[in-house]
Design a protein around this nucleic acid. Structure first.
Lengths: 315, 315
DNA sequence: CTAATTTATGAAATGCATTTCAAGTCAAGG
DNA sequence: CCTTGACTTGAAATGCATTTCATAAATTAG
């Protein structure tokens, strides 16, 4: 590989001058600039980006911690992040965590090791104390609200959105309501349960199934719910694909939607449009865009993104 | 920031010894190793990854050129890539190109500048000559077949899959058939047209609409097709979401599926399961996994991934 | 026609960790 | 007792580009 010294030697100038040409510095004599450019062209020279990153101490790269890499919700966030990143000439490295604490820490270490200028945490396994201990080494932004001032947030008010959805069910005359969530121990599950309790009173455990991610999970969950003695007349699904699975199961049992069973999905995905499923749209793309902007600005603001309910034919 | 010299000074050893401890080199006296580790712990030292990448000349990072970052097909490929990457402790940087030649070259330059050990091209805008001129600087793998020996390929036989799909229509008695594609100038569009001509004879231009990506595009395309004087009785959609849109339009016109209109989608996405749409599954996740493996192995093999047709209720 | 700028350029320091080279100690084998 | 091989360690070279400092020439301002 040819390096800046080779170019300097061949062009008969010092490395400083080559560097100046490379970085479009003003004060370089026209003839020297031209001969440097000529040599660069001839040798097909490209500066080593690792050396530049090392000396500059920044990489214009952001790491994005994603628990799952085939999940439509996280794909939406990532999509938003990529939009803003490309706009600002930043690169995005995807960091799949599968909610492993060790993996997450490994990624935060990479922030410390100067590989990324910042990190976006779309969802986390570690506690905030652990995460905050890395906030000196770069900008850390979360897609979940936290009051800790070291962390920027681009988030939505999950609790309110769940309240709204449940209230919608109630207004339509549903009192026996079930729901699904992804992880039992997650923050959103907790908020879901709180909202449920608020609207319908103490949750009976059989009306909640966790571990739902895809269409098949929804199909199965609906089966379980609809075999209960006192079966629910409405189900909130943590995703439109999960909702789609529920819809299919209901249809397979000759149930009419929304008369026999009402369903609300989440995140306004294409399948929900296709199947006519009402949904709570948390605007994850915007959440991602905002999160990326915060990292780029090195801001620790807390920005709330509004959600909206899209009513279709399943309620 | 503390660096390896600080650690060496504080531990009373040379930097070489610190480096040896860091890299688990065998021959370091127990007491020195311990005191180095103690200082590292105390100072919360983390080696600078840019310096390591610079000197090692490799980053264990792979760049993935994706034309669109919100497209379910490319998401599937990316998903496969991430699976393999994490298995092998590689990082993935997403490089959105939007089919811009300039962007693509910019990304290939980053390969040359040693930022990535290899690049996966899921779809390309540049000609092969341009791409090949970068193959000396790292491993380049394409998700599209090319005979050029400099490039590894993880691909599927699009042409055969289209032949099969069209033959399926024909077997079911469809002779007036339409289809959609994404980009007019793409390779897959060309193969699609060739396959169409092979099965149904010379394509009439009104039976082909390009520029289709999402459900809404499919809805609109179906509208156009179904307003033709001699309207098609079957449509091949370049994606299950597009197919879903067609399905919805047909339903809105009180058409029965598959009797009045048959539809085949592509890539076996959740919406296709939800709506019961038959599909050609090119197994993009596997394509991605294989592509990533090839880059990691620095192999230039050509690996063909088999496709399969999933029959549901839309044909 | 000086003094103050502006323009132009190179040497050397810097950022950080790895690796080679050389040299030294110590124990086991003959 | 000498040789050989296994340990152990540090100095210095290496990978590469940026930036500061110093210097000098050419302008411009006063």
């Amino acid at each position: 590989m040819t390096n800046i010294h080779d170019i300097a030697r061949l062009a008969g100038v010092s490395v400083s001058t080559v560097s100046r040409v490379l970085n479009n510095y003003k004060y370089v004599a026209r003839d020297k600039r031209e001969s440097v450019l000529k040599v660069i062209e001839e040798m097909k020279y490209t500066p080593n980006k690792n050396a530049i990153d090392l000396i500059r101490g920044e990489t214009r790269t952001i790491g994005v911690i994603l628990p799952y890499n085939n999940n439509p919700a996280f794909d939406q966030i990532l999509n938003g992040i990529l939009n803003k990143a490309i706009e600002n000439d930043f690169s995005i490295t995807v960091l799949p965590s599968n909610y492993s604490k060790e993996k997450e820490v490994e990624y935060l270490q990479k922030l410390k090791s100067k590989l990324y200028d910042g990190i976006i945490i779309t969802s986390r396994a570690n506690d905030w104390e652990t995460i905050i201990s890395y906030s000196d080494y770069g900008s850390i932004v979360s897609c979940e609200y936290t009051q800790h001032k070291e962390i920027g947030c681009s988030y939505m008010d999950r609790y309110s959105s769940y309240l709204d959805a449940f209230q919608l069910f109630k207004n339509k005359g549903h009192y026996t309501v079930a729901f699904t969530t992804a992880r039992l121990e997650s923050n959103s599950t907790r908020q879901m349960i709180d909202a449920y309790n608020e609207i319908f009173g103490e949750l009976q455990p059989e009306y909640h199934i966790s571990g739902c991610h895809c269409l098949e999970d929804g199909y199965e969950a609906a089966g379980q719910f609809l075999h209960l003695l006192e079966r629910p007349t409405a189900i909130y699904a943590n995703g439109d694909e999960v909702a789609g699975g529920m819809y299919l199961y209901a249809k397979s049992q000759q149930l009419k939607i929304p008369t026999d069973l009402a369903i609300i999905g989440q995140e306004n995905q294409p399948i929900g449009i296709g199947m006519g499923i009402s949904t709570v749209d948390h605007q994850l793309t915007k959440i991602g865009e905002q999160a990326c902007s915060l990292v780029i600005k090195k801001s620790r603001e807390k920005v709330k993104i509004p959600y909206r309910i899209v009513e279709r034919d399943s309620v």
